[in-house]
Amino acid sequence: MTDSTRRDTASRFIEALPSKVYAAFVTPEAVAQWLPPEGATMEIQAFEPRAGGRFQMTLTFAAASGKSTAHTDVVVGRFVELVPRQRIVQAFEFDSPDPAFAGTMTMRWGLEAVEGGTVVTVIAEAVPAGISPADHEVGMHSSLAHLAVYVESQVP
């Protein structure tokens, strides 16, 4: 069950142009590298980066913290909007037998060009009630840190 009023946010400066950051969102190999939070790996089963395109991903956790099984999260969803170098909007549906983790969460990723790089801001809306705000904050900041490492290592 999702809380339709809940909004979790996180931001990070990345030393790369918005075009480089955007590319990391629409390349499945890149997403599999940076999106999983610390302690998790990701396998992508489907990835169609276009408005209306679908995705399916399985996160595997070293420690038991999954929502689909003890060690996994299976996430399916779709790309709602893609604006190159500016914005990515995704709808994530969690596959969980626990209603506290079920529902559709919207993730809005904003890319703002600033001197020396890009500020990436993620806003999660309608977050499932079972995801604690503290855990979600840690996870979002971890993903943004991995995004920064990935993108900054790709810049010549």
Rank of each mutant, 00 (worst) to 15 (best):
T2I: 15
T5F: 01
T9S: 11
F13I: 02
I14T: 04
I14D: 06
A16C: 07
L17V: 11
P18S: 11
S19L: 06
V21L: 09
Y22C: 05
Y22P: 00
A23V: 00
V26C: 02
L35Q: 09
P36I: 02
A40V: 04
M42V: 01
E48C: 07
G52L: 03
R54F: 08
M57Y: 08
L59I: 04
F61G: 03
F61W: 15
S68E: 12
S68K: 02
D73I: 03
G77Y: 13
F79K: 10
V80G: 09
V80P: 10
L82Q: 10
R85K: 14
Q90M: 14
A91Y: 07
F92K: 02
E93M: 05
D98G: 06
A100Y: 05
F101T: 01
A102K: 14
A102W: 09
G103Y: 03
M105A: 10
R108T: 15
W109I: 01
L111A: 02
E112Y: 04
A113Q: 15
V114Q: 13
E115L: 11
E115I: 02
G116F: 00
V120A: 09
A124L: 13
G139A: 15
M140D: 12
H141D: 01
S142P: 01
A145S: 13
V149F: 10
Q154L: 04
